[in-house]
Structures are given as structure tokens and as C-alpha cells.
Amino acid sequence: MATLLALQGVTHTFRRSGGALVTAVRDVSLEVGESETVALVGESGSGKSTLGRIALGLIRPDAGRVLIAGKNLHDMANRELRRERIAFQPIFQDATASLNPRRTVRDLLRQALRQRGADRNEHMRIELLESVGLRPGSLYLERYPHELSGGQRQRLAIARALAMKPRLIIADEPLSGADVSMRGQVLNLLLDIKKERGLAYLMITHDISIARAFADRVAVMKEGQIVEEGPAGVVLSKPREDYTKRLLAAVPQLAY
């Protein structure tokens, strides 16, 4: 299995507004292979979102390397970085915040397709919308994000990511913004995309049940470090680390 993304010894420190230094990510190494789904599990403040942003090239780490297909993201010239980074697309927790409120659906998709030099006609945009279950696509083109429901917005964000024909989708809590009844729809959509397009996922989540249902491999993050990593079946059923055990025990179970 070819490696798509490799983080090697990544460390990143923030300065808080008070002036105190916080090491959000400490010497983390993680790989995601072709068509593989890796869940990065941890609580808020564990550094998992920061790690996701580092992988997307949105944050430059203080130390360590971020390799896309073997090349360090931060050694690339601007032009090359812009060309290479489109292979990794984000899906954020809050679809509302991830869509420019002043652009219509058509505008948002056109912008993405154009970057790939693929915006040829309306048909392509409609096809994208329908591939994420927004049917008929033509119905949505004129709308603004705020005129869509929460579930539809998340689908639109996914459609925009797909417009770039990515090889890896880095999804940061893609379901916490969605209602319980919409979760199944979004999860199935992500599964379908994976099956149809052979995509890899880095799924950043605090929700163990999502990791359990979705991931091939699980990495557990705590205080900026990966404390346990392995096949999903093993980590989530026979955890070695105390922290993983506590995390699993804290999830409210349906008692009946």
C-alpha cells in the first residue's frame, strides 16, 4: 500500500493570548495509506485538530516533516504547493463556517472546479451535486448556503471537496454539527464515496462509535501525542493504554 500522507516527528507550539506557550502537537508521526481510513481519536485539547490542519498544510509545524507522496510540503515552492495540496481536501465540523456566505452553490462549485481547470459547463456542477445526493442538482445552484439545511450544507461541502478529485479527505468532526437523524445519511455518503472513488480518509473525531464503524486503523491522541495506534478492531476492543480504556468507558452506552 502506497503512503499518501506521512507526518514525521511533527511538533507545533502555540502562543496563547496570555503569552503562555502550549505545545499542541509533540513529536507525532502518522501515516495514511492509499484508500485507507484512519481515525484520529481524542478529546478537545488533545491536539488532533491541530494535527489535521498541519496535514492540510494550513499550519506550518515548528519541527518535523509533512510528506505528500514522499515530498515535504514545506520544501515546495508556492506554485508546486498549490498544485500538490489539492490532493488533500478538508471537511470541517461546521459546514456553515466552511462555505463563504456570499457565494451561491454554483459559485462555490465553479470556484473549486476552476482551480482544477475543469469547470467546463453547468452539467459538471449538477453532476457533483447529485453525486452527494442533492437531487435534482439544478434546484440547488442558485441557493446560498444559509438557504440550505444543515445536512445539505455538509453535502455541499463534501461536493466541493470532491470537485478537486482528492486522494485523501481530512474530515475534522464531520458529524458533530449534524443531528442524530442526519448522521446515517452523511456516514453512508462518506462510505459510498470511499467505495466508488477509492479515497483515503483521516477521520478526526471524539466519537468512538464513528471510529468503530468507519476506521481501518485508529490512533488515540492525548496531550499532543499519539498514545496508542493500531488496527481499529484491536485498539477499540483490547486497548493497551489506560487512557484509551478510560475514553472507551466514558462513552455513554445504550443500556438496553
Partner: peptide, 17 residues
């Protein structure tokens, strides 16, 4: 429960809120 059926698909409630 993130229930999945035989095809591995998640249980859903169709439609919109």
C-alpha cells in the same frame, strides 16, 4: 447505535428535519 445492515450501510432516517 450507528447500526449497520448486511451491506455495511448505516441506518438512516430519510428526508430533512
Amino acid at each position: 447505535r450507528a447500526d449497520r445492515d448486511a451491506q455495511g450501510r448505516f441506518a438512516t432516517i430519510g428526508g430533512e428535519p
